[in-house]
Amino acid sequence: MAEVEIKAVSKAFGKTQALSDLSLTIGDGEFVALLGPTGAGKTTALRLIAGLEQPDSGSIRIDGRDVTGDAPADRDVAFVFQQYSLYPHLTVFENMAFALRAPTRRMPEADIRAKVQEVARLLHIETKLDNKATQLSGGQMQRVAIGRALVRSPSIYLMDEPLSSLDAKLRGELRLELKRIQVDLGATILYVTHDQTEAMTMASRIGVIEGGRLMQIGTPREIYENPINAHVAARLGQPTINLLPAALFAGAPVGVETIGARTEHLTIARGGGDISATVKRVEHLGDQSHLHLDLAGRPVVTLADPEAGFGAGDVVSLRLNRPLFFDAKGWRVAA
């Protein structure tokens, strides 16, 4: 394991600027998640670190060594691809042993066997070792793909949305397992995802990336509580933050154009609040309800206690409780 340092890296594909001036340091043993929508440049960042793409400018250092011009094989990284990328004609064992059989390693067969079995146990696929890679379910394939990275002890594990093609239940399970394994091994991981839950639950730090730029990086808590702009604020939190014109409310600080209100910033009452809104629809989720409101013609979504007994057509009163303020360009304004 080692520290990975990316300095002012830019990359364009033709006329599309995939990444602009990305600087990021991933500490030894750290789990960093890059969070952003499709096409934000997350995968490009991973591929640049792996050496599958060459940056137009900037440098990449792994463990203090400049690897910017090196081939993938010389960088000592492991990559988990979104599409599993297993060798379909090989068994699970052979797939996992593939990297260990590289001639430069000269690893004895007994050691390879022991290592693969150890990792297979960790991922609960030890009974599948003799199966063909194509005979597995999606979840098992992804475990093998992760296992193929884990058998090595690279400087950094690069993971490109490894759980995105799995169903919700399996994703939840593997999320926990992956975090457990990372802690056990003390692994350095750069994890790319568009799923805020994955980023929030696993990462020690989250980098929010949008349009090829790293907008903010910090602990999940920092990013959630102190987003630097409306983009970052909209990335995290469920339901998504409500961005409302400041003019609707009295008492916003000077220069504030938009007020960002998450569920915890809104107190709902039958009356006596700052502003009234009409209930359009109630979605019952079991332990809580999604309340869809109409606030002066703008949709507002918040959570409510199912016991509160709101129904469509009810008029409720909202009170803001230390919301987030943004200026005309979407940047955060201190309260």
């Binding site: 081939a71 990284v77 691809f81 599409q83 990328s85 060798y87 390693r105």
Partner: peptide, 24 residues
């Protein structure tokens, strides 16, 4: 991406040919 995975796994071009290209 199969070749890319092999590339990261330190497989030489020669090994990529014999263990990926030809069998597939």
């Amino acid at each position: 991406y199969i070749y890319e995975a092999a590339e990261v796994d330190r497989a030489s071009k020669w090994r990529q040919f014999w263990s990926i290209t030809l069998p597939m």
